[in-house]
């Protein structure tokens, strides 16, 4: 009895509920990473002394160290300093903060890809700074960064399972729980892997198509 189809089918509903949590964490984590990454990119570009160096140092440090450790730090250690978060919230914060370090680089590359002439034309029309950014630069930079951001969303999706270390009941946690109850881990774990493949592979094909349309940064 290597593979038990009945058991596999039986475990599917629970796994799908776990997958919902995985997707929710990915969605919220991505939104946080998109927003925070833009803030990081703009602060670094602003060249405000000290502040932009601090952000640079943080980004370099945070993306060189493991997300798992960061999640554990946020969930288990911060409560000792009066910051208590639920597992899902802590997980979303960890994902968002870690991926913001990547997305800030994406935005930076996207902003750098806006030709100098666009800045100069905006200056020659005496547009105020806010309009230069909101009216001219970002509308041109953002479409270019969409595929790269899409790749990070897929990447994040596949990293959500490490939040099992802080008790987020996502799909791999569910698989482990089922395995512990029945002493059969093969079916739920394999199905979990298949679910990841079923979502991330089509998503990455979609991103590759987008890349062909708008170009790779």
């Amino acid at each position: 009895m290597i593979w038990d189809w009945d058991y596999a089918i039986e475990s599917l509903p629970a796994l799908l509920r776990g997958l919902q949590v995985t997707l929710l964490a990915t969605l919220l984590g991505s939104l946080l990473a998109f927003a925070l990454g833009l803030v990081f990119a703009l602060v670094r570009r602003s060249r405000v002394p000290v502040l932009s160096q601090l952000v640079w140092a943080f980004v370099e440090f945070w993306r060189s160290t493991p997300l798992l450790v960061q999640a554990i730090l946020i969930f288990f250690v911060l409560p000792g300093f009066g910051i208590t978060l639920s597992p899902l919230t802590a997980g979303v914060v960890a994902l968002g903060l870690h991926y913001a370090c990547y997305t800030s680089e994406v935005y930076r590359a996207g902003i750098d890809a806006v030709p100098r002439g666009q800045w100069e034309a905006a200056a020659a029309l005496h547009l105020p700074r806010s309009r230069v950014w909101l009216g001219v630069v970002l509308p041109q930079a953002v479409p270019r960064v969409v595929p790269a951001l899409g790749n990070y969303v897929i990447s994040m999706f596949k990293e959500v399972p490490l939040l099992l270390a802080i008790g987020v009941v996502e799909v791999v946690t569910v698989a482990n729980q089922l395995g512990a109850q029945t002493f059969r881990l093969v079916e739920p774990l394999t199905l979990a892997g298949v679910l990841f493949l079923l979502i991330s592979y089509p998503a990455s094909l979609l991103v590759r198509r987008l890349e062909r349309r708008v170009g790779v940064l």
């Binding site: 030709p115 002439g117 666009q118 100069e120 034309a121 905006a122 020659a124 009216g135 001219v136 509308p139 041109q140």
Partner: peptide
């Protein structure tokens, strides 16, 4: 400008 520099997003 030599390269026009029209805003392509408008």
């Amino acid at each position: 400008f030599q390269q026009f520099n029209l805003f392509p997003n408008m």
